[in-house]
Structures are given as C-alpha cells and as structure tokens.
Design a binder for these strands. Structure first.
Length: 685
DNA sequence: CAGAGACGCTTTTTT
DNA sequence: AGCGTCTCTG
C-alpha cells in the first residue's frame, strides 16, 4: 500500500482475497507536498482508503461511516497528487449526489475539481453513446424513453402486432415493461423471468417474446433508447468495439463508483471494461444497504468484486458518526439476522441518547395524528423542521399523513412517488418538443396526435404512416383533411414554428407549445389551473438550458426533485419537513426520523413473503431506514388494518423487530384525550 | 370511428 | 386512483 502512514491494515483484509504486490506510483505522480492535511481530517480507516495506491480497491462503508467524506477526499487526493481531474470519473447513484461531492471536493482543492467527470451510470452512458454510439448504429440525436414512454411504445407495438386480443388475461403494459426490464438488467432470457416470477403469464410466453422482439426493433428503427438500453448499449459498445473501449478507458484513468451494492451485472460489466486498461477502480458500498434488487441490482457484485478484480485491497469504514448508540444497537440487531454479508461491526462515540420508540396506533389516522403532534412538540424543543423526516416503504403510505400535516399547518416536501415530470400535462407538452427533436419518435407523435380534436387511435396510426412516407412531415400534416383537419393544421403550424425559426431555446419552445396547448388542457382537465402552474414550473426549468437536446435528456435522466403535489408548495420557506420513500432517503440523514407502517404485511410487504431473497431485501431496507436517524427514532405501526391483497387484518409489528429485546426500545400505546382508547374515533376516510 | 361514461381490478421501490 | 374494457351515442 503506497502512501500509507503505516502498514497495519492487513488485518482488514479477509475472506479469500489473494495478495498482490502493488507497485509504487510513478514518481511524478507522487506529490512532493500535499496541500491538505489528510491525516488530521480523517480517521485511520478513511485515510487508508483515501490514500490508496493504484489498482482496484473495495471500500466497505457502514451506514453513517463517512462514506461521502471519504470519496470527496479521495477525489481531492487524486487531484492533489497531480492527476488530471478530467481523467477522474465519479459514478454515483443520483446526479445530485455527484454534484454535491464535487462541490465539496472543490472546497478542498479548488476549481480544478470542476473538471472531474461525474454522474449516474445512465447519464454517463447517455453522454458516451451520443459521442461513440455510431459504431453500434445509434445516431447522436436519439431520444430517451422514460418508463411511461416505454410502456406506451410497448402498447403501440402490441396493437400493431395484433396481440391485444382481449380473449385471455394478457399482462398489462406496466407488467410487460417490468418483465422486459428485468430480463435486460439481469442478462437473462425473458422465458426464465416469466417462468420464475410471472408464472401465471407463462401461457403467453410466445406472444411476449414476439412483443419483445417487436419492441426492440421499433426502438432501434426510431432512434429510441429506454433506461435499460442506456446500460445495455453502453455495455455492448465497450465489449464489442475494442477501439472505443480503449479510447474511453484511457479517457478515464481513475474510476470511482459510489453505492456499488446497488449496481447490476450490466453496470459491473461496464466498470470492468472501462477499467480494462488500468484497473484503477475504487468502489464504495455497503452490502447491508443493497435495496435495488427489483431492478436487477445484486449485492453479489460487491461480494464478488475482489474475485473479478484480482489484487483488490479491501478497506472497511466502521466508525459511525451519525447515530447514537441506542439507535445503532437496534440497527445492528436488525441486520444481524441477515444471511449473507461482509462482517463488520459499527461503533460510535455518541453513547448517550434516547431509546428508539415503538408506537402502536389504533389505526392509520391515529398514526398520522401522532406524527403531526410529535413533530410540533419536537419543533418546540428546538429541532428544526428541516431536521425531521418521515420514511415509508411505499409512496402511497403517506397519503393520510399528508392530509393531517396540512391540517396542522406543517409544510413538507415529498420525495419519491409520482414525479412532476410524469404527470400527463407535462408529458403532453414535452411530447411536442420531442417530435421536433426526433421526427421518428412514434411515442411522442402518438401522444401529440391523440390530443387533437377528432383524432383517435385509428386516425393517429394513419397520420403516422403518412408522416413516415413524407420527407416534409409538417407539410403532410397540413394536407390532412376530414373531421380533424383543422386541428392538425394548427398542430402543423405550431410544430413548424418550432422547427423552422432556427434554434429556438428550450424556454421559447415551451412558450410556443404552451400557447397551442392551453385550450387543449382546459378541455381535458377540470383542474387545469393547478396543472398550469406545473407548466409554469417547467418553463422555469427550461430557462436554465441552452439546448433542447440536453433539456430533454436531463429531464428524463434526472427528473427534478419532489413529487407532483410538492411542486406547488415550493419556495415558500426552506423550513420544511421531508416525507420520503426509504429508497429515496438513501444516503441522507436527519436528527429525527419517523418510520411509519412498520406493520407485518406492509413492511415487509406481503409480496416479499414468498421468497427468501425478497424478505432479505426488505430487511436491508428496514436497516437503511433506521440508520438514517441521528438522535430520535420513532417506529410506528397501526393495528386493525385490513389488507385487501391478502384479505387479512394486519395488527402485528414488523417481523424484523422480533429479535429486538424489550430493553432496546421504548414502547408507546396511543390513547385519546380523556383516557379512552382511540379505536372508535378513527379513520373517517 | 371518436369520445364519454360506467365498472371492475389491482396496488412497491427507481434510473 | 388509474387503467383497461365495454357500451352507447353521434
């Protein structure tokens, strides 16, 4: 290990890692004098990782162990050591987290950090495919389909293939998209996925395979790329085109990957090939926090990393800086029951703190009222609203709470769930920009045409067929006759004004379309004023962009934070509570965390009962939620909840609490004011 | 053939 | 609540 202050980290390596002698860094890469005092800023484990030499490294970073800090310092250290920042590639889970890390690195090392390349796998794939994708038949102007677009295209292809006969129970487009996606992300044939996870649709396997081929062909033909394609195609590019592989690999000589436990096989392959010429790859993650198996992620990636990269040195970060001992005790107990993981032991120096509280409520509304009341209390005690969060398994779990919070005048922002960008009216407006940007985009054409008065599925198909044949599509549009003639003419005029008048900036395009679209919006939705405000918001976002192409792909790859409902409440004050799905809370922390719906059947959800793997994932998810809390942790569960899916009444707290001893938790039962139990005053909705 | 209204079904998590 | 399907009307 080069550059280490001592050699005492051998004991940190375990499992069957082989040893490998590391060469010293070449002399000119070794800084004569570093500008930062790393040893003073980091603990010894962090320091070891930050100053690691060349070659593959695996950093096992427990929850709250300063993982981000370590990555930030690693970036700074590399730059400090004289490495060209533009040769560093930082792959993260969200672009926001990459931006945050680079900003922090900038504070340490200065503006040089701005040249570091960073982003999500998907956004990096987007960038590389636009630049080098020609060799696998991709034009630089391709359009990115989000999940909803992908489903729409699947539906379109299905009807073209005549597979929508209503005789039998054919899976819905969302389910089909799920199957396809799982197949791509796990590199397994569709048949396997269907038989294993969707056995009740096995009868339709032939049709599904046909549909999958049709969907793939349609995407390629029209220069459309869905989320999975970004990874699949990048993988293909770096695996099949040796020239491109060498080019890209030599472009990024130092690769850092955050949240490695949530990568899938495609991403692991990409990393492996990108690092093929230099092996300078450092991955950071925590196997105990792997929560994305549903999209093909496998914590096995992190377990197998040392085997894939011979000579890997393993670093472990085990000191937790976030939580108090009582919270950590609970977290440790929960995760100890997990079956397969790297052994590590988290410890903290924050010994004192209140015990986590387990709260039983008579029903959902009692739970909501408890949360609202407690939040007000904590705020009185001086905990700022922005230091509190409510976490839940599924987005809809917070519906009742949202109403209750509004009633108490508490403002919040919701993360996860339906995004602003996914609402029908925003997609409608964007579809107009997209047909101009990519006239082959059948999904958007279909959407745009269906909005025209008098156009239905049949007419839309006919128009699209005519457009494909014509080399002047807008001209052809104007020639259309019949009931919908006038509407199509108006559409043609609008689109021409976008395409014709040179390079209109995104914000100007949004304006033009808005004018055309407003009457449609008004006839389609009774609640149009609310939706107009979303479109104003979109306008504001567009103002930040110079190019339509970047605007569109950014929206698809990194939708703005906050759900549809949250948007209207924006920028009143920054003193806001966070409501979040556990998935969206990854990497974040708060003084006080409430986790709601800790009831067996909701968390873990009934869907996960059947498979051990599913249950293990839910356990890790629970672990993630608990370890978000710094000081106060409330776990709440309603009882006497009817679950429609299973037909059961749920009343038992999550099974993940079974191994927790009574001394580790304070237990509360809620009573109505006046002393009576509150079970008859609940849930009027 | 488009569009509106009614009804039954099913509901995780996200780039 | 939202999607898909079915039915009815113009």
């Amino acid at each position: 290990m080069v550059g280490l202050p001592n050699n005492s980290f051998a004991h940190l390596m375990e499992r069957d890692t082989k040893t490998y002698v590391l060469k010293r860094l070449v002399d000119e890469a070794v800084p004569r004098k570093l500008s930062i005092d790393y040893a003073a800023a980091l603990n010894s484990q962090q320091l070891a990782a930050v100053t690691a030499g060349e070659g593959p490294s695996l950093v096992i970073a427990g929850a709250g162990s300063g993982k981000t800090r370590t990555l930030v310092y690693r970036v700074a250290y590399l730059i400090d050591s004289g490495i060209d920042p533009s040769q560093i590639l930082l792959l993260t889970f969200t672009r926001k987290s990459s931006q945050e890390m680079l900003d922090r690195a900038g504070e340490l090392i200065g503006v040089r950090s701005e040249r570091v390349r960073g982003g999500t796998f998907h956004s990096v794939a987007n960038m590389l495919l636009r630049r080098y994708g020609r060799s696998i038949g991709l034009e630089p102007g391709f359009t990115i389909l989000d999940r909803g677009d992908a489903e729409d295209l699947i539906a379109l292809v299905r009807s073209q293939l005549g597979l929508n006969e209503k005789d039998k129970r054919f899976p819905r487009k969302g389910t089909i998209a799920e199957m396809f996606s799982k197949s791509e992300n796990t590199l397994r044939p569709l048949a396997e996925i269907v038989v294993e996870e969707f056995d009740h649709f096995s009868d339709h396997l032939d049709a599904l395979e046909q549909l999958q081929r049709g969907y793939q062909a349609s995407k390629r033909q029209r220069q459309l790329v869905d989320y999975d394609d970004l990874l699949v195609l990048l993988r293909r590019l770096v695996m099949e085109d040796e020239g491109v592989r060498r080019t890209i690999s030599s472009l990024y000589r130092y690769i850092l990957v955050d949240e490695y436990q949530d990568t899938n096989r495609l991403q692991a392959d990409v990393v492996r090939h990108l690092a093929s010429t230099h092996h300078n790859v450092m991955v950071v993650g925590d196997d105990a926090q792997s929560i994305y198996a549903f999209r093909g992620a496998t914590f096995k990636n992190i377990m197998e990393f040392p085997a894939l990269f011979p000579g890997t040195i393993i670093y472990k970060l085990e000191e937790n800086y976030r939580s108090t001992q009582p919270i950590l005790n609970l977290a440790n107990t929960i995760i100890e029951a997990a079956t397969e993981r790297y052994s590590k032991h988290l410890f903290t120096r924050k010994l004192d703190g209140p015990l986590p509280v387990l709260v039983e409520a008579a029903g959902e509304n009692a739970q909501s009222r408890f949360i609202a009341q407690k939040i007000l209390e904590l705020r009185e005690e001086g905990v700022p609203l922005s230091e509190m969060a409510v976490l839940f398994r599924s987005s809809f779990h917070s519906f009742d709470l949202e109403i209750e919070l509004s009633r108490h005048g508490l403002s919040f922002i919701k993360r996860g769930g339906v995004k602003f960008i996914e609402t029908a009216h925003v997609k409608d407006l964007l579809a107009h920009m997209r047909v101009v940007a990519n006239p082959l985009d059948a999904v958007s054409w279909h959407r745009v045409l269906m909005l025209v008065e008098g156009v239905g599925p049949k007419k839309a198909q006919d128009v699209m067929a005519a457009l494909v044949k014509s080399d002047k599509p807008y001209h052809a549009l104007r020639e259309m006759t019949g009931r919908s003639g006038k509407g199509l003419k108006d559409l043609a005029l609008t689109l021409e004004s976008l395409a014709g008048s040179g390079d209109l900036r995104p914000a100007e395009q949004v304006n033009h379309i808005y004018e055309y679209y407003l009457p449609i919006l008004k006839t389609q939705y009774d609640d149009y004023p609310k939706r107009m405000r979303d479109l104003d918001h979109l306008q504001t976002i567009a103002e930040g962009y110079q190019e339509v192409e970047t605007f569109l792909s950014d929206l698809a790859l990194e939708p703005p934070d906050g759900s549809a409902a949250g948007v209207e409440a924006t920028d009143r004050d920054d003193e806001r509570l966070v409501l979040s799905t556990i998935h969206s809370a990854k990497g974040l922390e708060w003084q006080c965390v409430f986790v709601i719906w800790i009831v067996d059947g909701r968390f873990p959800s009934v869907y996960s009962f059947s498979e051990d793997e599913g249950l293990e994932e839910e356990r890790r998810l629970f672990y993630v939620s608990v370890t978000r809390a710094k000081r106060h942790l409330y776990l709440t569960y309603p009882i006497n909840v009817f679950d429609r899916g299973s037909g059961m009444i749920l009343s038992k707290p999550s099974r993940f609490l079974d191994p927790v001893s009574p001394g580790q938790l304070d237990q509360l039962v809620l009573m109505e004011e006046g002393g009576r139990a509150d079970w008859y005053s609940r849930d009027d909705h």
